[in-house]
Design a protein around this nucleic acid. Structure first.
Lengths: 232, 232
DNA sequence: CGCCGATTTAACCGGTTGGTTAACATTGCG
DNA sequence: CGCAATGTTAACCAACCGGTTAAATCGGCG
């Protein structure tokens, strides 16, 4: 089996780790693979797909450049795996939210805070997505894995909205997809474009105070919209 | 005077165009410069700063590669001039809006529609900005030109908000900068991330119907927010 | 007309890039 | 132990990239 193809099944095929795992063994395919993936994530996030350098990825992964091709096939294939991993990560976090456990108003607030906090903690998610959009999602389109990974939040948000309408706290006729996109947009744009915005407004948009104000504004904006024309 | 430096003053120093301008003259510095700038804008927008190729820019501009360096100094300097030009363009369009001529509610709507329409008509604006943000606005920071080009919309929007509050149609305490950023965010995110979003939601977000729905949602979201808690 | 400076061209350059070759080391297994 | 698969390495490569050299060409002015 060709190495790059076999690597896809590594989780299944993987044999047991070397017994004497205390001091790093001279060979550890899992470690090498993971190190390359971590280094690649940083590199692609920082320089984009076009600006990323495979030599630099190998250097930071402390692996031979050849291993990158051995495990991932090509620079672009590696980029796709990186994308798949960051999507897996955010989807896993989304799963933990349990928005329906809260009152509708609190549920929406929690979603906004989560989205904002996630972007702040994982700026690489935004840069990688921007890069992928520059390339017209050509890698994403090839990934059955990601395309199957639907966000659980659309269905959940839809449920939250319905309950809010029934309780009389939310307006009727809100499209959950539009709202989901808007909530993402409000934080994403501010953080992704932080550098140009900070330069043009001539103030640091990432200062603690500014961040607090932004989050408050986003919550007020969405809550105000949902509350307007509500029956109660 | 070094060519690249002199080029900055070209508007002033430029001599009269050749008299027989009917059939393109063999030499026309203005035309060459403009052609390079146009080609560069397309190239940077499509491939990002890192992915852009100077040879391709020269090819599409039908100019010798040397002319690129003759007029602009370097790839990065050229990128800065491209950035400056697209900013000039959007600022000029913003100037024409005259939002204060309308009732506050209509003024805000017009701003939302304008922002959305501008992004739709100038997708290169978003890609170039994304590229610049990837590079932490390092070019923008060097440009006194752009840093001095404050958007007239902040002051205007502030005025519109005040009048809306006085008329009782808008809530109090809305920060015009936050609202301006939010209005930009709602359209920008949707359009800039259109490819990944369309892939994940498995539907074309740029279909005419989808675009109409998005614009309506954005207007409703902002108007709903501003109307909530208004005195009237 | 002849000169001078602005503009244009082809050829070139050294370093870098993504990707490859082929040999070598280590490991688990029979 | 010996073998075969797996993992690792250094050296290599052709294409490409941003940038440069130096000479040619054109246009306008005196």
């Amino acid at each position: 089996m060709p190495p790059a193809v076999r690597a896809i099944h590594s989780k299944i095929t993987a044999r047991a780790r070397p017994r004497r795992a205390a001091l790093r063994p001279t060979r550890d395919s899992e470690r090498t693979r993971a190190a390359i993936l971590d280094a690649a994530t940083q590199e692609f996030a920082r320089f984009g797909l076009g600006g990323a350098r495979v030599d630099r990825i190998a250097l930071h992964a402390k692996a031979n450049k050849r291993m990158l091709y051995y495990y991932f096939g090509s620079k672009e294939d590696l980029f796709l795996v990186v994308l798949e991993r960051v999507y897996e990560n955010i989807r896993a976090e989304e799963q933990k939210l349990h928005l329906t456990d809260l009152a509708p108003v609190k549920g929406v607030e929690k979603l906004i805070v989560f989205t904002w906090t996630y972007y702040l903690a994982h700026p690489e998610f935004m840069t990688l997505l921007n890069s992928e959009n520059l390339h017209r999602a050509q890698h994403l389109k090839r990934s059955l894995k990601i395309r199957a990974m639907h966000s659980p939040l659309i269905a959940t948000l839809s449920e939250v909205l319905k309950r809010g309408v029934r309780a009389g706290t939310f307006r009727k006729g809100v499209d959950p997809v539009q709202l989901y996109v808007s909530i993402a947009a409000l934080g994403y744009f501010y953080l992704s474009n932080n550098h140009t915005l900070s330069t043009i407004f001539d103030r640091d948009l990432l200062a603690p105070r500014a961040k607090t104000q932004r989050l408050r504004h986003m919550v007020e904006l969405v809550q105000g919209y949902l509350a307007a024309n509500a029956t109660a």
